Simulated assay, not measured.
Amino acid sequence: MLSEAIATRDERYSRQVLFRPIGPEGQAKLNQSRVAIVGMGALGTVIAPQLVRAGVGFVRLIDRDIIEPSNLQRQSLYDEADAEQGRAKAAAAAEKLEQANRDVVIEVAVTDLTWRNAESLLADVDVIVDGTDNFQVRYLINDVAVKHGIPWSYGGAVSSYGTTAFFRPSETPCLVCLFGANQGTGGHDTCDTVGVIAPVVSMIGSMQVAEVLKYLTGNVDALSNTLTHLDVWQNEYRSVTLGRPKENCPCCQERRFESLSAQRDGLTVSMCGRQTIQVRPPSGLTVPLADMAQRLSVFGTVRHNPHLLRCDFGDVHITLFADGRALIHGIEDETLARSLYARYIGM
């Protein structure tokens, strides 16, 4: 049986091993590697299948959100049944990825990445991959990466354009070097404001995976060491050399990790593509979802699984996660969102 398993593994990766820069030694390195993917939306659903199928030994999927119909146009791991059930993205993705490669250990974290959990979720891997849609989380990733000396892949895609870079602490600039320390406060295009088409997502995500594979297999000389921008609609492609870390950078040179040390919990408005407000409680919680489902059933139709609970109130519905975080769907008013959270969740 063991010999059959080894033979199956050899056949699975045979075409990748034939690629000389990887070869048997590179494949062995991939099989021993650990990667965390932050965000299982559009980019994450391009990145995760490629890494899992390539044989990266451990992949942690981190995502706070659920699957909705507007996701299906570009988030290629999910289907209509997932959207109808409002499944947690990380959990649904893991289920499908396990069917693609049972040799890979896939860990699921259905949670919001915050200063409270960022180090515990990111500091034990070889590479962090950004599949998020906001700069606040990217700055948090950058802090953890610099603090613990972990390379990370930055990627963003909206409309028809996208940008990517592979950061290596002490070897390249960090995110703060490039964009300054105050870019995590909003004002950037999102898929909710300018839309997004699938081809740019596929291209940026694949470019991120290529850099991750180069690094994990020891092909560091092949890394692009550039900040790359492309627009698939306007036929544009340009790149800028990253160079060295910036002198006096407050993050990578002075080692001030402001996103980690700010210790801010707050309200996130406008989850990408719909009228939804996220309410995050001020301290870490563990919510007994089965008990909460029974409590809320008198107010509306309730469905729950080990990861989340959904209660439909008609025009408004609530998705509650086990960590106390909630998505209030169907409204845009922050005050009303907090009021509904206090009224129904009571924490």
Results as ranks from 00 to 15, higher is better:
Arg280Pro: 03
Leu178Asn: 03
Arg238Ala: 09
Val144Lys: 00
Glu236Gln: 15
Gln278Asp: 06
Phe58His: 15
Leu296Val: 05
Thr276Lys: 09
Asp130Trp: 08
Trp115Asn: 10
Ala293Met: 02
Ala7Ser: 14
Ser259Phe: 14
Ser3Ala: 15
Val38Ile: 06
Ile277Met: 01
Gly155Phe: 09
Ala42Asn: 07
Thr172Trp: 04
Tyr341Glu: 00
Leu327Asp: 14
Ile66Phe: 11
Tyr139Trp: 12
Gly205Ala: 10
Ser259Tyr: 14
Leu340Cys: 05
Ile67His: 00
Val158Asn: 06
Met271Ile: 15
Arg238Lys: 11
Val35Tyr: 03
Leu61Arg: 04
Pro49Glu: 02
Ala222Cys: 09
Phe257Arg: 06
Cys191Val: 06
Glu11Phe: 13
Ala181Gln: 11
Thr276Cys: 15
Asp82Ile: 10
Ala322Pro: 07
Asp65Leu: 09
Leu30Asn: 10
Asp221Gln: 13
Val59Arg: 03
Val240Tyr: 13
Thr241Pro: 13
Pro250Val: 13
Leu43Ser: 01
Gly273Leu: 02
Pro281Thr: 07
Val108Cys: 05
Leu61Val: 00
Pro169Met: 09
Leu308Gln: 12
Phe257Pro: 06
Pro21Lys: 06
Val146Cys: 04
Asn134Val: 01
Ala88Pro: 01
Phe58Asp: 11
Val287Asp: 04
Asp221Gly: 11
Val137Met: 03
Lys89Ser: 03
Arg168Glu: 15
Val146Ala: 08
Glu98Arg: 15
Pro69Arg: 15
Arg34Asp: 07
Ser70Glu: 11
Glu258Ser: 14
Val232Cys: 08
Leu213Ser: 05
Asp79Ile: 08
Pro49Trp: 00
Gly86His: 10
Ala48Ile: 07
Glu25His: 09
Ile150Ala: 10
Arg338Phe: 09
Leu223Val: 01
Leu213Asp: 01
Arg20Phe: 12
Cys311Pro: 08
Phe135Pro: 02
Ile150Gly: 09
Ser202Glu: 10
Ile62Gly: 01
Thr163Phe: 10
Leu242Met: 08
Gln32Tyr: 01
Gly324Phe: 05
Gly55Arg: 05
Val129Gln: 04
Gly57Pro: 07
Ser339Val: 11
Leu122Trp: 06
Ala109Gln: 13
Ala81Gly: 14
Ser160Gly: 04
Ile106Lys: 02
Ser159Arg: 14
Asn117Cys: 06
Thr226Asp: 11
Leu113Phe: 11
Val194Phe: 00
Leu178Thr: 02
Ile141Asp: 07
Gln253Ser: 14
Gly41Ser: 05
Gln263Glu: 15
Phe167Glu: 05
Pro199Trp: 01
Thr164Met: 15
Tyr344His: 13
Arg138Cys: 05
Val194Ile: 11
Ala342Gln: 15
Ala222Met: 13
His307Pro: 06
Val220Thr: 14
Gly300Trp: 08
Ser270Gly: 10
Ala109Thr: 04
Phe135Ala: 01
His304Ile: 03
Thr45Arg: 05
Gly55Lys: 03
